[in-house]
């Protein structure tokens, strides 16, 4: 199963769905082309949550975004989580869905956040094996997100861009390129963004994430809590010039501003995409 961007529909620019903006989204002109929904929020959904999902689905293309599949877990996948995810994604039948190259669970412990996978052959084999298992249950194209990380795991023999590229080649998955995560890692770990981007197979870069974080103790924190900073916009322009991106999602989670601020950021991203002929 190959997820070349050229085979997927162009969705434009959208927003990670948050309850607070429900009224704005159902206005006459929300300025949103599609929505990303957090898959976990719709597991074991109450009647009202299910109705919400149906209303959203009637109005927007929805891209489910998983948080806890833990594709990097060497002990394998959680069968119940995978089952719930499969039920949701297969029912929605979106153009694609997404998860992270990360480990969120190991040894009976739920870490509570995305932690890195070692950038080496063993780490890659684990991710590829888990993805193949997922693809047996979820035929919808899967795209994989790069994460930020506090801990640089010893024993990495590949640079991150190369590591991701090889996973995409071996699984046929696309890439959800989180530009803010990439920028955060360049600041916190000295990652070279140009080297990272040049390692990626262009035809596999399907969607982008962007937002702003904050600085604490001399480090950038990927808090999804601030307006998008200019270096991230610059990086977005570079990425849109280089890759045939099909969609961009503004991923604001905390410190939620008035909707007009998010609309303005989506508009700016949409204009950037037009500059590089990604959409009309």
């Amino acid at each position: 199963m190959k997820t070349a961007a050229q085979d997927l529909p162009c969705l434009g620019v959208g927003l990670g769905f948050r309850d607070r903006y429900s009224t704005d989204l159902f206005s006459d002109d929300p300025g949103v082309d599609f929505l990303e929904i957090t898959a976990d929020h719709f597991f074991e959904a109450s009647d009202s949550k299910q109705r919400q999902l149906e209303l959203l689905r009637d109005r927007f293309t929805l891209i489910p975004h998983g948080l806890d599949l833990s594709l990097g877990s060497a002990e394998g996948l959680d069968a119940e989580y995978l089952s719930q995810l499969a039920n949701l994604v297969n029912a929605l039948n979106p153009p694609w869905w997404s998860e992270h190259i990360a480990c969120t669970r190991a040894g009976g412990i739920q870490i509570g956040h995305l932690s890195p996978v070692p950038f080496n052959e063993k780490g890659r084999q684990v991710v590829v094996q888990n993805i193949h298992r997922v693809q047996e249950q979820i035929p919808v194209p899967l795209i994989l997100e790069n994460i930020t990380y506090d801990v640089t795991l010893p024993g990495g023999s590949e640079v991150e861009g190369e590591f991701l590229a090889r996973i995409m080649e071996e699984t046929g998955c696309g890439l959800l390129l989180d530009i803010t995560n990439l920028y955060t890692n360049t600041v916190n770990h000295g990652l070279d963004a140009t080297v990272f981007l040049n390692a990626l197979p262009a035809e596999h870069v399907v969607q982008l994430h962007f937002t702003g974080g904050h600085e604490a103790n001399g480090r950038l924190v990927d808090s999804h809590s601030r307006a998008t900073p200019e270096p991230v916009w610059d990086l977005m322009a570079t990425v849109l010039q280089q890759f045939p991106v099909k969609g961009i999602i503004l991923e604001r989670d905390e410190n939620l501003p008035p909707y007009e601020e998010l609309r303005a950021e989506m508009h700016r991203a949409r204009q950037l995409g037009r500059t590089w002929n990604r959409w009309s």
Partner: peptide
């Protein structure tokens, strides 16, 4: 790697 990840998680 499973053992290592369990160690890291803890």
């Amino acid at each position: 790697l499973a053992k290592e990840q369990a160690f890291l998680a803890k």
